[in-house]
Computed example of a mutant assay.
Amino acid sequence: MSDKSWASNPAVRRSMRSNRSRDTKPELVLRRALHAKGLRYRVCAQPLPDLRMKADIVFRPARVAVEVRGCFWHGCPLHYRQPTANSEYWVAKVARNIARDQKNSKALAEAGWLLISVWEHEDLSAAADLINDAVRRRRDV
């Protein structure tokens, strides 16, 4: 393991590197529910070409982007627990993620997009209903 690694040991490094950035279980469940409602979308796509962000689900004609946020990675107010190992690194990392999420949300709003954030612990069926309503409402405008 290199001296510059963020991991506290090689096993942790292996485990953290194996975390998926797309096609997570909550994303797949949500996408299936949206597809069943007749919605079609882009997966892991950039809503805005100038914004360095890929949303999990994008409805371009309606200008709706959906992010499925993991409680640890995005600092969920209900479930985030500060890790005990290498806590200095992780506290800073999650703070950067939260700041990036806020910056992206603001940029999308300024461009006329609606960003819907869904936490991994939320009822995904209810989230699919909310997204369906928002997409159909914005398409009709």
Rank of each mutant, 00 (worst) to 15 (best):
S2L: 13
S5W: 12
S5L: 09
A7W: 05
S8Y: 05
N9S: 11
N9I: 07
N9A: 09
P10E: 04
V12G: 09
V12Y: 12
R14V: 10
S15I: 03
M16L: 15
R17M: 15
R17Q: 13
S18D: 10
N19V: 15
R20E: 06
S21E: 14
S21P: 09
D23K: 07
D23A: 07
T24Y: 11
T24Q: 07
K25E: 12
P26E: 02
P26M: 03
L28S: 04
L28A: 03
V29P: 03
V29K: 15
V29S: 03
R31C: 02
A33D: 00
L34H: 03
L34Y: 04
A36E: 14
L39A: 03
L39H: 08
R40S: 03
Y41W: 03
Y41F: 12
Y41Q: 00
V43A: 08
V43R: 04
A45I: 01
Q46V: 06
L48R: 05
P49M: 07
P49K: 10
D50R: 12
L51C: 06
R52W: 13
R52M: 12
M53L: 15
M53H: 11
M53K: 13
M53V: 05
K54N: 10
A55Q: 02
D56S: 04
D56T: 01
I57T: 00
V58M: 02
R63F: 04
A65Q: 04
V68K: 01
V68A: 00
R69I: 10
R69C: 10
G70P: 05
G70C: 03
F72W: 09
F72L: 12
H74W: 12
H74N: 10
H74S: 05
G75V: 07
C76D: 03
P77H: 10
L78A: 15
Y80F: 12
Y80L: 06
Y80T: 11
R81S: 11
Q82W: 15
Q82V: 13
T84S: 13
T84L: 12
N86Y: 09
N86M: 09
A92M: 07
A92S: 12
A92G: 00
K93E: 06
V94M: 08
A95W: 10
A95V: 04
I98P: 06
I98S: 02
K103H: 15
N104C: 11
N104G: 02
S105Q: 14
K106R: 14
L108R: 00
A109K: 07
A109S: 10
A109C: 01
A109I: 01
A111S: 08
G112S: 07
W113N: 00
L114N: 01
L115P: 00
I116L: 14
S117R: 13
V118T: 06
W119R: 00
W119N: 02
E120I: 06
E120R: 02
H121L: 07
H121P: 04
E122Q: 13
E122W: 14
L124M: 00
A126F: 05
A127F: 07
A128W: 01
D129A: 12
L130M: 13
N132L: 08
D133M: 11
R136Y: 00
R137G: 05
R137V: 01
V141T: 08
V141Q: 02
V141E: 06
